[in-house]
């Protein structure tokens, strides 16, 4: 499941749904990314996507993860639009036979989402607005997998 949503979501409900009905999956790992307030510097986080293209590109990343880690299933849900501090931005869940593959696939997917998925992120705050670009650390994190 790969989905972009414009409204708040409940990571717990997504995890329950993702975990239900599995009898061969020994491990489910999840990651939830949450918008930070940055001590009041960010009041709104605005995320833009390219509908159709964004889902397709995430789909390619997801396919790589499935093959590389032998996943049984995965879910990626990403907010778009305006997001307030404390609200979840992204939810990733991976299902595998054993924990290592599930953990690693989750880590892999997030490293790719941070710097390769077609999203553009703008931080709004009392000091104005600025576009956020991936950091050198984000690129280094992704390079770990090549």
């Amino acid at each position: 499941m790969i989905r972009l949503v414009e409204t708040a979501f409940d990571p717990g409900a997504l995890l329950s749904e993702f975990t239900r009905g599995r009898s061969e999956t020994g491990a489910v790992a999840t990651f939830t990314g949450i918008a930070r307030a940055e001590a009041g510097a960010t009041t709104v986080l605005e995320l833009e996507a390219y509908p159709g293209f964004t889902e397709a590109e995430i789909g390619k990343i997801a396919e790589q993860a499935r093959e590389r880690f032998g996943l049984h299933d995965l879910a990626i849900l990403h907010r778009v639009g305006k997001i307030g501090p404390g609200e979840p931005i992204v939810f990733v869940a991976t299902a595998a036979g054993h924990r290592r593959a599930a953990f690693e696939a989750c880590d892999f997917l997030m490293d790719y989402l941070k710097s390769r998925a077609p999203f553009w992120k703008k931080e709004h705050g009392p000091g104005g607005a600025r576009w956020v670009e991936p950091t050198a650390q984000d690129h280094a994190d992704r390079e770990r997998w090549t």
Partner: peptide, 10 residues
């Protein structure tokens, strides 16, 4: 045609 500056998700 779409012009896509450096991407940043998550």
């Amino acid at each position: 045609v779409a012009f896509l500056p450096p991407m940043s998700g998550g």
